[in-house]
Structures are given as structure tokens and as C-alpha cells.
Amino acid sequence: MLRLSSLSKTYADGTEALRDITLQVPKGEILALVGGSGCGKTTLLRLIAGLDIASAGAITVNGETIKGPHPSIGIVFQEPRLLPWLTVAGNVGFGLAGQSPQESQKRVLYALEKVGLAGFDNRWPRELSGGQQQRVAIARAFVTAPKVLLLDEPFSALDAFTRASLHDHLLLLWSETKPTVVMVTHDVEEAITLADRVVVMRPRPGRMMETISVTLDRPRDRLALGFDKAKRRILHALDRSLQPEKTAPPQKGADNASHWW
């Protein structure tokens, strides 16, 4: 169970990126974060990954407080971020330093097979296409069997076709160890295809606005009735998240200002 309680993040320059995020993600759930640009999605993932420190609030995984990078939390960044001086196998096994070479080799080859890259273990990253590189990055995150996996728009740079096949690879890997997954996406259909719950966020400062459960059976069919319904709800929420807020403190401020004058 991943638990975020009253999480806030204000950057050194005063930007309030996140305010009061409280969220519980049960074990094995896939949660999607959607929201306009700059509403703090990446910031939230970086906090959970322990790459940044929260200004207030706490993050716990199975009751353990996260203060820095943690062995049970893995992340796939928006870019593949492969180490160009390591082969594909070297990259996938990067986090397996503690294992015996045989064990590590076995796990690496298995993960590569699962992402459809069997036989690519001796290639250099530069010899792979963008989609193949991203699959290596996913294999690298899965191979250490994290309890929580964070994905920051992992497929956003890819065409729809490649993306759909990566969804399958991802679900296949997920179904084996059932990690808790938190993924950021700009693609509403991607969110519905993969997620159990979709959280719509609102910018400036980043907050949670609405949570929508998706209860469709897997594998999900884009043409099913429920799919379209969920899509409409999310799009509607997204629309509202980008409108100015209803409770209108600025107006009040303006009134006050007129008194001042």
C-alpha cells in the first residue's frame, strides 16, 4: 500500500507545485494521474521516487516512510535514460548489482523476452529505436521487482501503434508480480486502458480534483460502452480542471482593492 498524506511541495524559487495531496493506492492497483501541463504530476512522482524532498507531508510504502530512493520503488522516466556505454543487457541489469551474475543474467534475459526484445541483449542503446529503448527502460525498472512502479508519461513520444503494443507488454509484466503502479499520462484512452483509478489534477498549485474509478474487465476494449463513458467523465473533469475556480477569491480581492483606493 502506497500512502501519501498531506503532501506539499514548494520549490526553492517559491513555485507551489503541489498542495495537500492525500491519496492511498492499494497494493496491485494501477493509478493514472492526468491533468494539464504544470500541475505537478512529475513533481509528485519524483517525491515518491525519493529524488526530491517534500516540503510537508509524508509518503509511506507498507508503513515505511520514504525519505530517499528506496529498493521497493522503481521509476520509468519520460525519456529512456539508458546508459549509452552499457549494452541493452547491461542497462536492464543495472540495478541488480547485488545478485550473482548467473541469477542477474537469467532475470535480465527473462525481462527482455517479456518486453519483446529477446536477442537484443548485446546491442548498444544507440542501435535501438525510440520505442525499443523505452521498452529497455521498462525492463530495467521491472527486473528489480519493485513493489511500487512509477511511470512518467513513458509512452508519450511514441506513435499510437507502438504505444498500444507497449500497453500489452506493460500489463503482461504487471500481471506477474502485481506491483502498485502510479503512471502519469496525457492520453485519456491510455489511462482508461491501463488504470483502475484515474486522478484528475488541477494546476497552480497542483491539487487533486477528482478521482474516477474504471471497473471494466481486462483486457479492455476501446469500443466497449463503459470505455466511452469513462472517457467522457474524465474529459469533462479535465475541462473543468482548466477553468478558473468557482469559489472566486480574486473577485473578493478586487472588492477589497477598490476599498483601498
Binding site: R81, L83, T144
Partner: peptide, 27 residues
Amino acid sequence: RKLIEVGQVFRLNRWAMVRRVMLPAVL
């Protein structure tokens, strides 16, 4: 910095970070 963060995610200690990320990057 992005590659350094990969090292951080896998909790490399200072020396491992130098050996496995920084040295090859500088080579």
C-alpha cells in the same frame, strides 16, 4: 543530471556512482 538520477534511483553509493556513471560519462 538525468543519468545521475538513474544511479540515484538504484541507490548507488558515492564510489559506485563515480565508477559506474561518472567515469564512463567522462571517458
